[in-house]
Nucleic acid binder design. Structure first.
Lengths: 337, 337
DNA sequence: GCTATTATTTCAAACGTTTGAAATATAGTT
DNA sequence: AACTATATTTCAAACGTTTGAAATAATAGC
């Protein structure tokens, strides 16, 4: 036996007043008598009245929901960014729906459609690895729903709002730090070339070298595709050179660094114990290592998330014009262990 | 200049037919002429018609959304469980809204209210550490919205549906494994006593000892509250005994184990290198350790999530009666490294 | 060419809100 | 007592769908 649902109508009948009075009382309209308000609000809490969001959304044409599409929730970067996103959103009366694309374009499109149907007020996206075409996000713009891209940078010439890690600066700092510790042979282990910020990071490394008068050596650079095998191949290459043996290493991402370390340790590489490394990420597990790395490049994911949400809400409130495309860079911070 | 929204009404006008025909055509009603259906569907895709979920929810009285409340998304157990939850849900046409309680009762109540307003069709909850009182979930039951508790077990006498890790079996297996490797002095490092399954794990440990004729020794048991200091205190206690020096250790959670290992390493404890450890969790980072642990207790979070969602959908479809309270245990698996 | 079937389309109410305009009640002035 | 000004409440339409019942159109049988 289902209870009759507690709606405005039901409250109105109980109180022998009109639905609109009840509605306005609950929404604290100034034209409603204080005594009436109290009567209504008391009954509402007594009967646990819970406004139906669907009805409100339908009527108001806005959902107070922000959609988030991101590759996955296993990567701590994203979960930490969600923290920032959610916190900022809820402080401003918005809820958040998170949808994982699992780095598949197809799932990303599905997610986009789902969020379109939900009529989210805005969208924040970290695109999947394979996203080259952005037409599935066009509908949002057409409906006047602002979209902010974060972390994963859509192809450079697409006019859009973006919030990114200042990954150039991160790599620069890390390299500089290692130089200042006296290293000359600093290797760079880069990520997949298809990821937008791969180049920025590499540039940070290069510029740091140049600014400190250290010649660039191609033998000290290798790339991995994230998988273990290619990381090992890359690390083999880096350490196979005759004259230039790295004494320090800047890595694209800490898990890559871990794989690399594990390999060097397993082959008992003579330089392993002295090697000083820095990776992007600042994983919580890093402190459990007894050998390198010496520092981490903290990308401040919470701040990235918060900035993305902040920008989105500014677009929603029309504090920023839709076509006044913004690019926000969030600085990295070198954390020395 | 906002476009006029593409609604059923708009399509109907364009096609010079009634709204109901359009609606039924899109929903593939058998009474609608095939040719008409095609005309409607073609225009709908051409104009990117996207049904308004709020309107549908309102009309149908169901949202096809399942609410998830969990402590946080930083713990890999939960993110992995979300994977299972989401996957199973979307296979059955449901979407998922995740809300983090950050282990605060207040936020948990807020989340519950939000999901109540959203009129989720069902709720899956891993309660916060501090939740003793469950009245904020009563409203769901009252509205006929089924609730499934998972992982974090609400106080035993509350009649409810639950899906739990078979944490007893996990601890039992781990202890047995260590016994079979020849250990006699197996220590147990437990978690906070307020967490429901602390006792189950301890019992698994105890039973394995008993079944293998190894006497229980209170000196080999200590508890931590998750924070570093209390872990270190606990580990100091375990290794301070005169006669019973642990040669193996079962830990409540891997991060605790990491803290413990780090401490033992830092003090250069003589038994550190030989110590064999097993913790609950199977963190991906575990493989980067060069010393213990030797195995992990894999809790199969994806499966826990999937089972919770499965149970919930069965309740929704009335394949299981609401008051026929279910308790599902998902077995752990010992993963040897 | 009429009726009986059957196929197809349309009507109209409902879901639970919000909100400006209109109606009514109350108090204040003369 | 009549009128005005103000305070408070109600009316009624709208948001975008769904859906059973009613209406209409098309086809077949004679």
């Amino acid at each position: 036996m289902q209870n009759t649902p507690v709606t405005l109508k039901y409250l109105a009948e109980k109180l022998k007043m009109s639905i609109s009075t009840v509605s306005k009382a609950l929404n604290n309209y100034p034209t409603i008598n204080e005594f009436t308000k109290k009567r209504v609000q008391d009954l509402a809490t007594e009967l646990h009245f819970t406004p139906n969001k669907s009805a409100i959304n339908l009527k108001q044409g806005r959902s107070k929901i922000i959609g988030i599409i991101l590759p996955n929730l296993l990567d701590h970067f994203f979960t930490r960014s969600v923290y920032g996103l959610e916190q900022f959103a809820s402080k401003h009366g918005y809820n958040v729906i998170i949808s994982q694309s699992h780095d598949s374009l197809e799932k990303e499109i599905q997610s986009a459609n789902m969020l379109l149907q939900t009529r989210v007020d805005g969208l924040i996206v970290a695109i999947s690895k394979h996203t080259q075409d952005f037409s599935h996000f066009n509908e949002f713009e057409k409906m006047g729903t602002p979209v902010v891209y974060y972390t994963r940078n859509p192809s450079f010439n697409l006019s859009c709002h973006k919030v990114l890690c200042n990954t150039f600066q991160g790599a620069y700092q890390a390299t500089k730090f290692l130089i200042e510790r006296g290293h000359q042979n600093i290797a760079y282990l880069g990520g997949p070339k298809m990821i937008s910020f791969t180049h920025d990071r590499f540039n940070g490394y290069i510029h740091a070298l140049k600014d400190h008068g250290i010649p660039f050596s191609a033998e000290l650079v290798a790339y991995t595709d994230f998988d273990k095998e290619s990381t090992i191949t890359a690390i083999k290459n880096l350490f196979s050179s005759e004259d230039k043996i790295p004494t320090a290493l800047v890595a694209f991402k800490e898990p890559i660094l871990f794989d690399a370390m594990k390999y060097l340790r397993s082959v008992n590489h003579p330089n392993f114990q002295q090697l000083e490394c820095i990776g992007f990420g600042n994983t919580s597990f890093i402190s459990y290592f007894n050998s390198p790395p010496v520092a981490s490049i903290e990308e401040n994911p919470e701040s990235v998330g918060e900035n993305a949400m902040k920008l989105l809400l500014q677009l929603l409130n029309r504090n920023i014009e839709t076509n006044d495309y913004q690019k926000i860079l969030v600085d990295c911070k070198l954390v020395v262990h």
